[in-house]
């Protein structure tokens, strides 16, 4: 939840919980998010919601991003940011640059390997397993 310099509150959101390319969500999700917002700031009940929108989230199997080299020379991967992308852009960019320049991962992103799935080292912050729609 954040407030823009103009005064409007921007908050969200939730995954719809199912694969969708429609970019519009549904009323149930709107209700859930509104209830969560009101639980955090009760006085939101007298403030009006202006607009709702939905996009497409690229969810990885454990809800954590992948920053790694691939089996192809000079092809690197920085993807699977789920809904944490925008605010993590500066740090992600820095770590990715580190990988490109030095050939080894930055400490912070050492575990964000593509082969972690195969090897069983998931970064499963939600403890949900290989369920992309619940992270």
């Amino acid at each position: 939840m954040s407030q823009s310099d103009k005064g409007g509150l921007v908050f969200g959101g939730d995954l719809d919980g199912y694969n969708s390319y429609a970019q519009r969500g549904n009323l149930a999700t709107v209700e859930n998010v509104a209830e969560e917002g009101k639980a955090l700031i009760p006085s939101l009940s007298r403030v009006r919601m202006l607009r709702s929108w939905g996009g497409i989230m690229d969810m990885s199997m454990d809800g954590s991003p992948i920053i790694d080299r691939t089996h192809l020379d000079n092809l690197y991967l920085n993807a699977g940011w789920c809904y944490g992308g925008f605010k993590a852009t500066p740090a992600s960019g820095f770590c990715f640059a580190h990988l490109l320049a030095k050939g080894t991962s930055h400490d912070t992103t050492r575990q964000m390997r593509l082969d972690r799935f195969e090897r069983g080292y998931l970064i499963d912050e939600n403890g949900q397993g290989a369920q992309p729609n619940v992270h």
């Binding site: 919980g17 199912y18 694969n19 549904n26 149930a28 369920q131 992309p132 729609n133």
Partner: peptide, 10 residues
């Protein structure tokens, strides 16, 4: 039934 009654596995 409304969507709220369901859980989606995948």
């Amino acid at each position: 039934r409304p969507r709220q009654e369901f859980t989606v596995k995948g």
